[in-house]
């Protein structure tokens, strides 16, 4: 192994690690706010990549139909909820808006060919489809059982993931897809040529992490989300709605997932079921951070990226085994150093 190979593997590891770091942050955010382990996080990634690819390949974009179906289900559930609460059914403005938005976007993506619209427009349309998908998933599947035991939430998460993978096969077919790179060329640093997509991934990830940091540290809404994660009862007592916090964290997770999918699509061929394994690596990062620390989770995810890249070189058939085995010493160390913590509720 010479310097050139180390740099190439390092670059690959950094690119993937940055994506895993984003996913780790997202999984952590959703877990701390809602106690839900977001197994379907990977579907946001795969659906985003495949939607971009469908637009570029001129094949039908079908994600709008899923969004429309979920928005309609959310509307029915809202009507049912008001019926139970007030004794008479009422349609909330929000749910009508949701269905209208989904319908408009479905018509747009079905009728307007977006193949020549440019990567930026395609990426925006993809995010416009996936971010509300996160909201709708929370409303339909998780909000009714928000107070349930984390184990129940995990089982529902697995079920949602399995259903979404099936729907993914239906929408995108079994073929894998790759999108065009955002730009050509790259940057030469001494002996090393940095791929342009690597630069995009690193720049967008850093930008997003900075944006999230500012949101959580500076804005009242970001602080409210943190507060909901720190003390649920306390948050409710100051008027932070757990529903709103849940929806906001899911929308953020969907935003991060869709951006990750858009970024990774030109580098890796993505299939309808590829999301799971990608987000699982983010999850390993989140576990390294003890499902509590954002910086450690991000660093853990970067480490996973490097381990994956170098094990591809040394023992490519054991790549996944090596990556996922990394979780074992962390779990052993955590179980030995954990003496049980008392929460101050």
């Amino acid at each position: 192994m010479n310097f050139q190979i180390v740099m190439l593997l390092g670059q690959d590891g950094l690119t993937n690690g940055a994506i895993y770091a984003l996913l780790a942050l997202s999984i952590l955010l959703v877990f701390t706010v809602t106690r839900i382990l977001l197994i379907p996080q990977g579907e946001f990634v795969a659906f985003a990549a495949l939607t971009m690819a469908a637009m570029q390949g001129g094949t039908p974009v079908r994600l709008g139909w899923l969004l429309l179906a979920l928005a309609a289900a959310a509307m029915v559930m809202d009507i049912h909820a008001t019926w139970r609460r007030d004794g008479r059914p009422a349609v909330r403005r929000g749910s009508v808006l949701g269905v209208g938005y989904a319908a408009a976007l479905t018509v747009l993506t079905t009728l307007v060919p977006l193949g020549d619209a440019g990567v930026a427009v395609q990426a925006l349309v993809t995010m416009a489809l996936i971010v509300p998908l996160g909201l709708a998933l929370y409303r339909v599947f998780y909000q009714p059982i928000a107070a349930a035991h984390p184990l129940v939430l995990l089982i529902v998460s697995i079920a949602v993931h399995v259903v979404l993978v099936g729907v993914g096969l239906l929408m995108f077919g079994p073929e894998g897809a790759r999108t065009e790179p955002f730009s050509d060329g790259g940057l030469r640093l001494g002996m090393v040529m940095l791929n342009s997509q690597t630069l995009w991934v690193v720049a967008v990830s850093l930008g997003l992490i900075l944006g999230l940091y500012l949101f959580f540290e500076r804005s009242l809404y970001g602080k409210a989300l943190r507060a909901a994660a720190v003390n649920r009862l306390g948050a409710e007592l100051v008027g932070i709605s757990p529903e709103l916090a849940g929806k906001a964290s899911f929308a953020l997770a969907a935003l991060i997932g869709s951006l990750s999918g858009i970024l990774i699509a030109p580098i890796t061929t993505i299939y309808y079921d590829s999301g799971f394994i990608i987000s699982l690596k983010g999850f390993v990062g989140a576990i390294i951070g003890g499902l509590a620390s954002y910086p450690v989770a991000a660093l853990g995810a970067l480490l996973i990226g490097q381990a994956e890249s170098f094990s591809t070189f040394w023992a490519s058939s054991y790549k996944e085994v090596i990556v996922f085995t990394l979780i074992l010493p962390v779990l052993v160390w955590r179980s030995l150093s954990h003496h049980g913590a008392e929460d101050e509720e």
Partner: peptide, 26 residues
């Protein structure tokens, strides 16, 4: 309500706790 266990945002600053206390006037 100030509950018996106080339900503060333990890992956040005093000032952030107070600002969030006024969240209903966001």
């Amino acid at each position: 309500l100030v509950p018996e266990k106080r339900a503060l945002f333990a890992t956040m600053s005093v000032e952030d706790n107070l600002r969030l206390g006024g969240f209903r006037f966001h």
